Simulated scan of single mutants.
Amino acid sequence: MTVPRRICAGYSLGSLVTGSFSTVPGLLLLPYLTDSLAVPAAAAGLIVLLPKAWDVLFNPVAGRISGRCCRT
């Protein structure tokens, strides 16, 4: 079964917007912290890195747990 182009375009657009919504603040946060708030670069880097590292480590765990308990 093939998925119509219109459906693919809709999902692609939604994914693009979601990705932009989560990526752009992360890209702009580091210069804002260092230039506007005068946070040291190492501390600003950690502020940006730690939530992303948390996601990398714990999203697969949460997915495995939710997948295990919600199977029918």
Rank of each mutant, 00 (worst) to 15 (best):
V39A: 10
V61I: 06
V48D: 03
P40T: 11
P60Y: 09
R6A: 15
S22E: 14
A44K: 09
L33W: 03
A42K: 07
T18F: 05
N59T: 15
F21C: 12
I65N: 05
R6M: 12
L50K: 10
G45Y: 03
D55C: 15
V39C: 10
I7K: 14
R64N: 01
L30C: 04
N59H: 13
G63R: 08
K52T: 15
G67M: 00
L29A: 01
V17I: 10
A42S: 08
S22G: 08
P31T: 01
V3P: 02
V48L: 01
L13Q: 11
P25Y: 00
T2S: 15
S20M: 13
P51H: 04
A43Y: 09
F21S: 14
G63M: 04
S20L: 12
C8Y: 10
A53M: 15
R64A: 09
S66E: 04
G19V: 14
R64H: 01
C70A: 13
V61G: 07
T23I: 00
P4L: 14
G26R: 11
R68G: 04
G10M: 09
L13P: 01
Y11P: 00
Y32C: 02
S15E: 10
G67C: 06
A44C: 09
K52L: 13
S36V: 03
A53T: 15
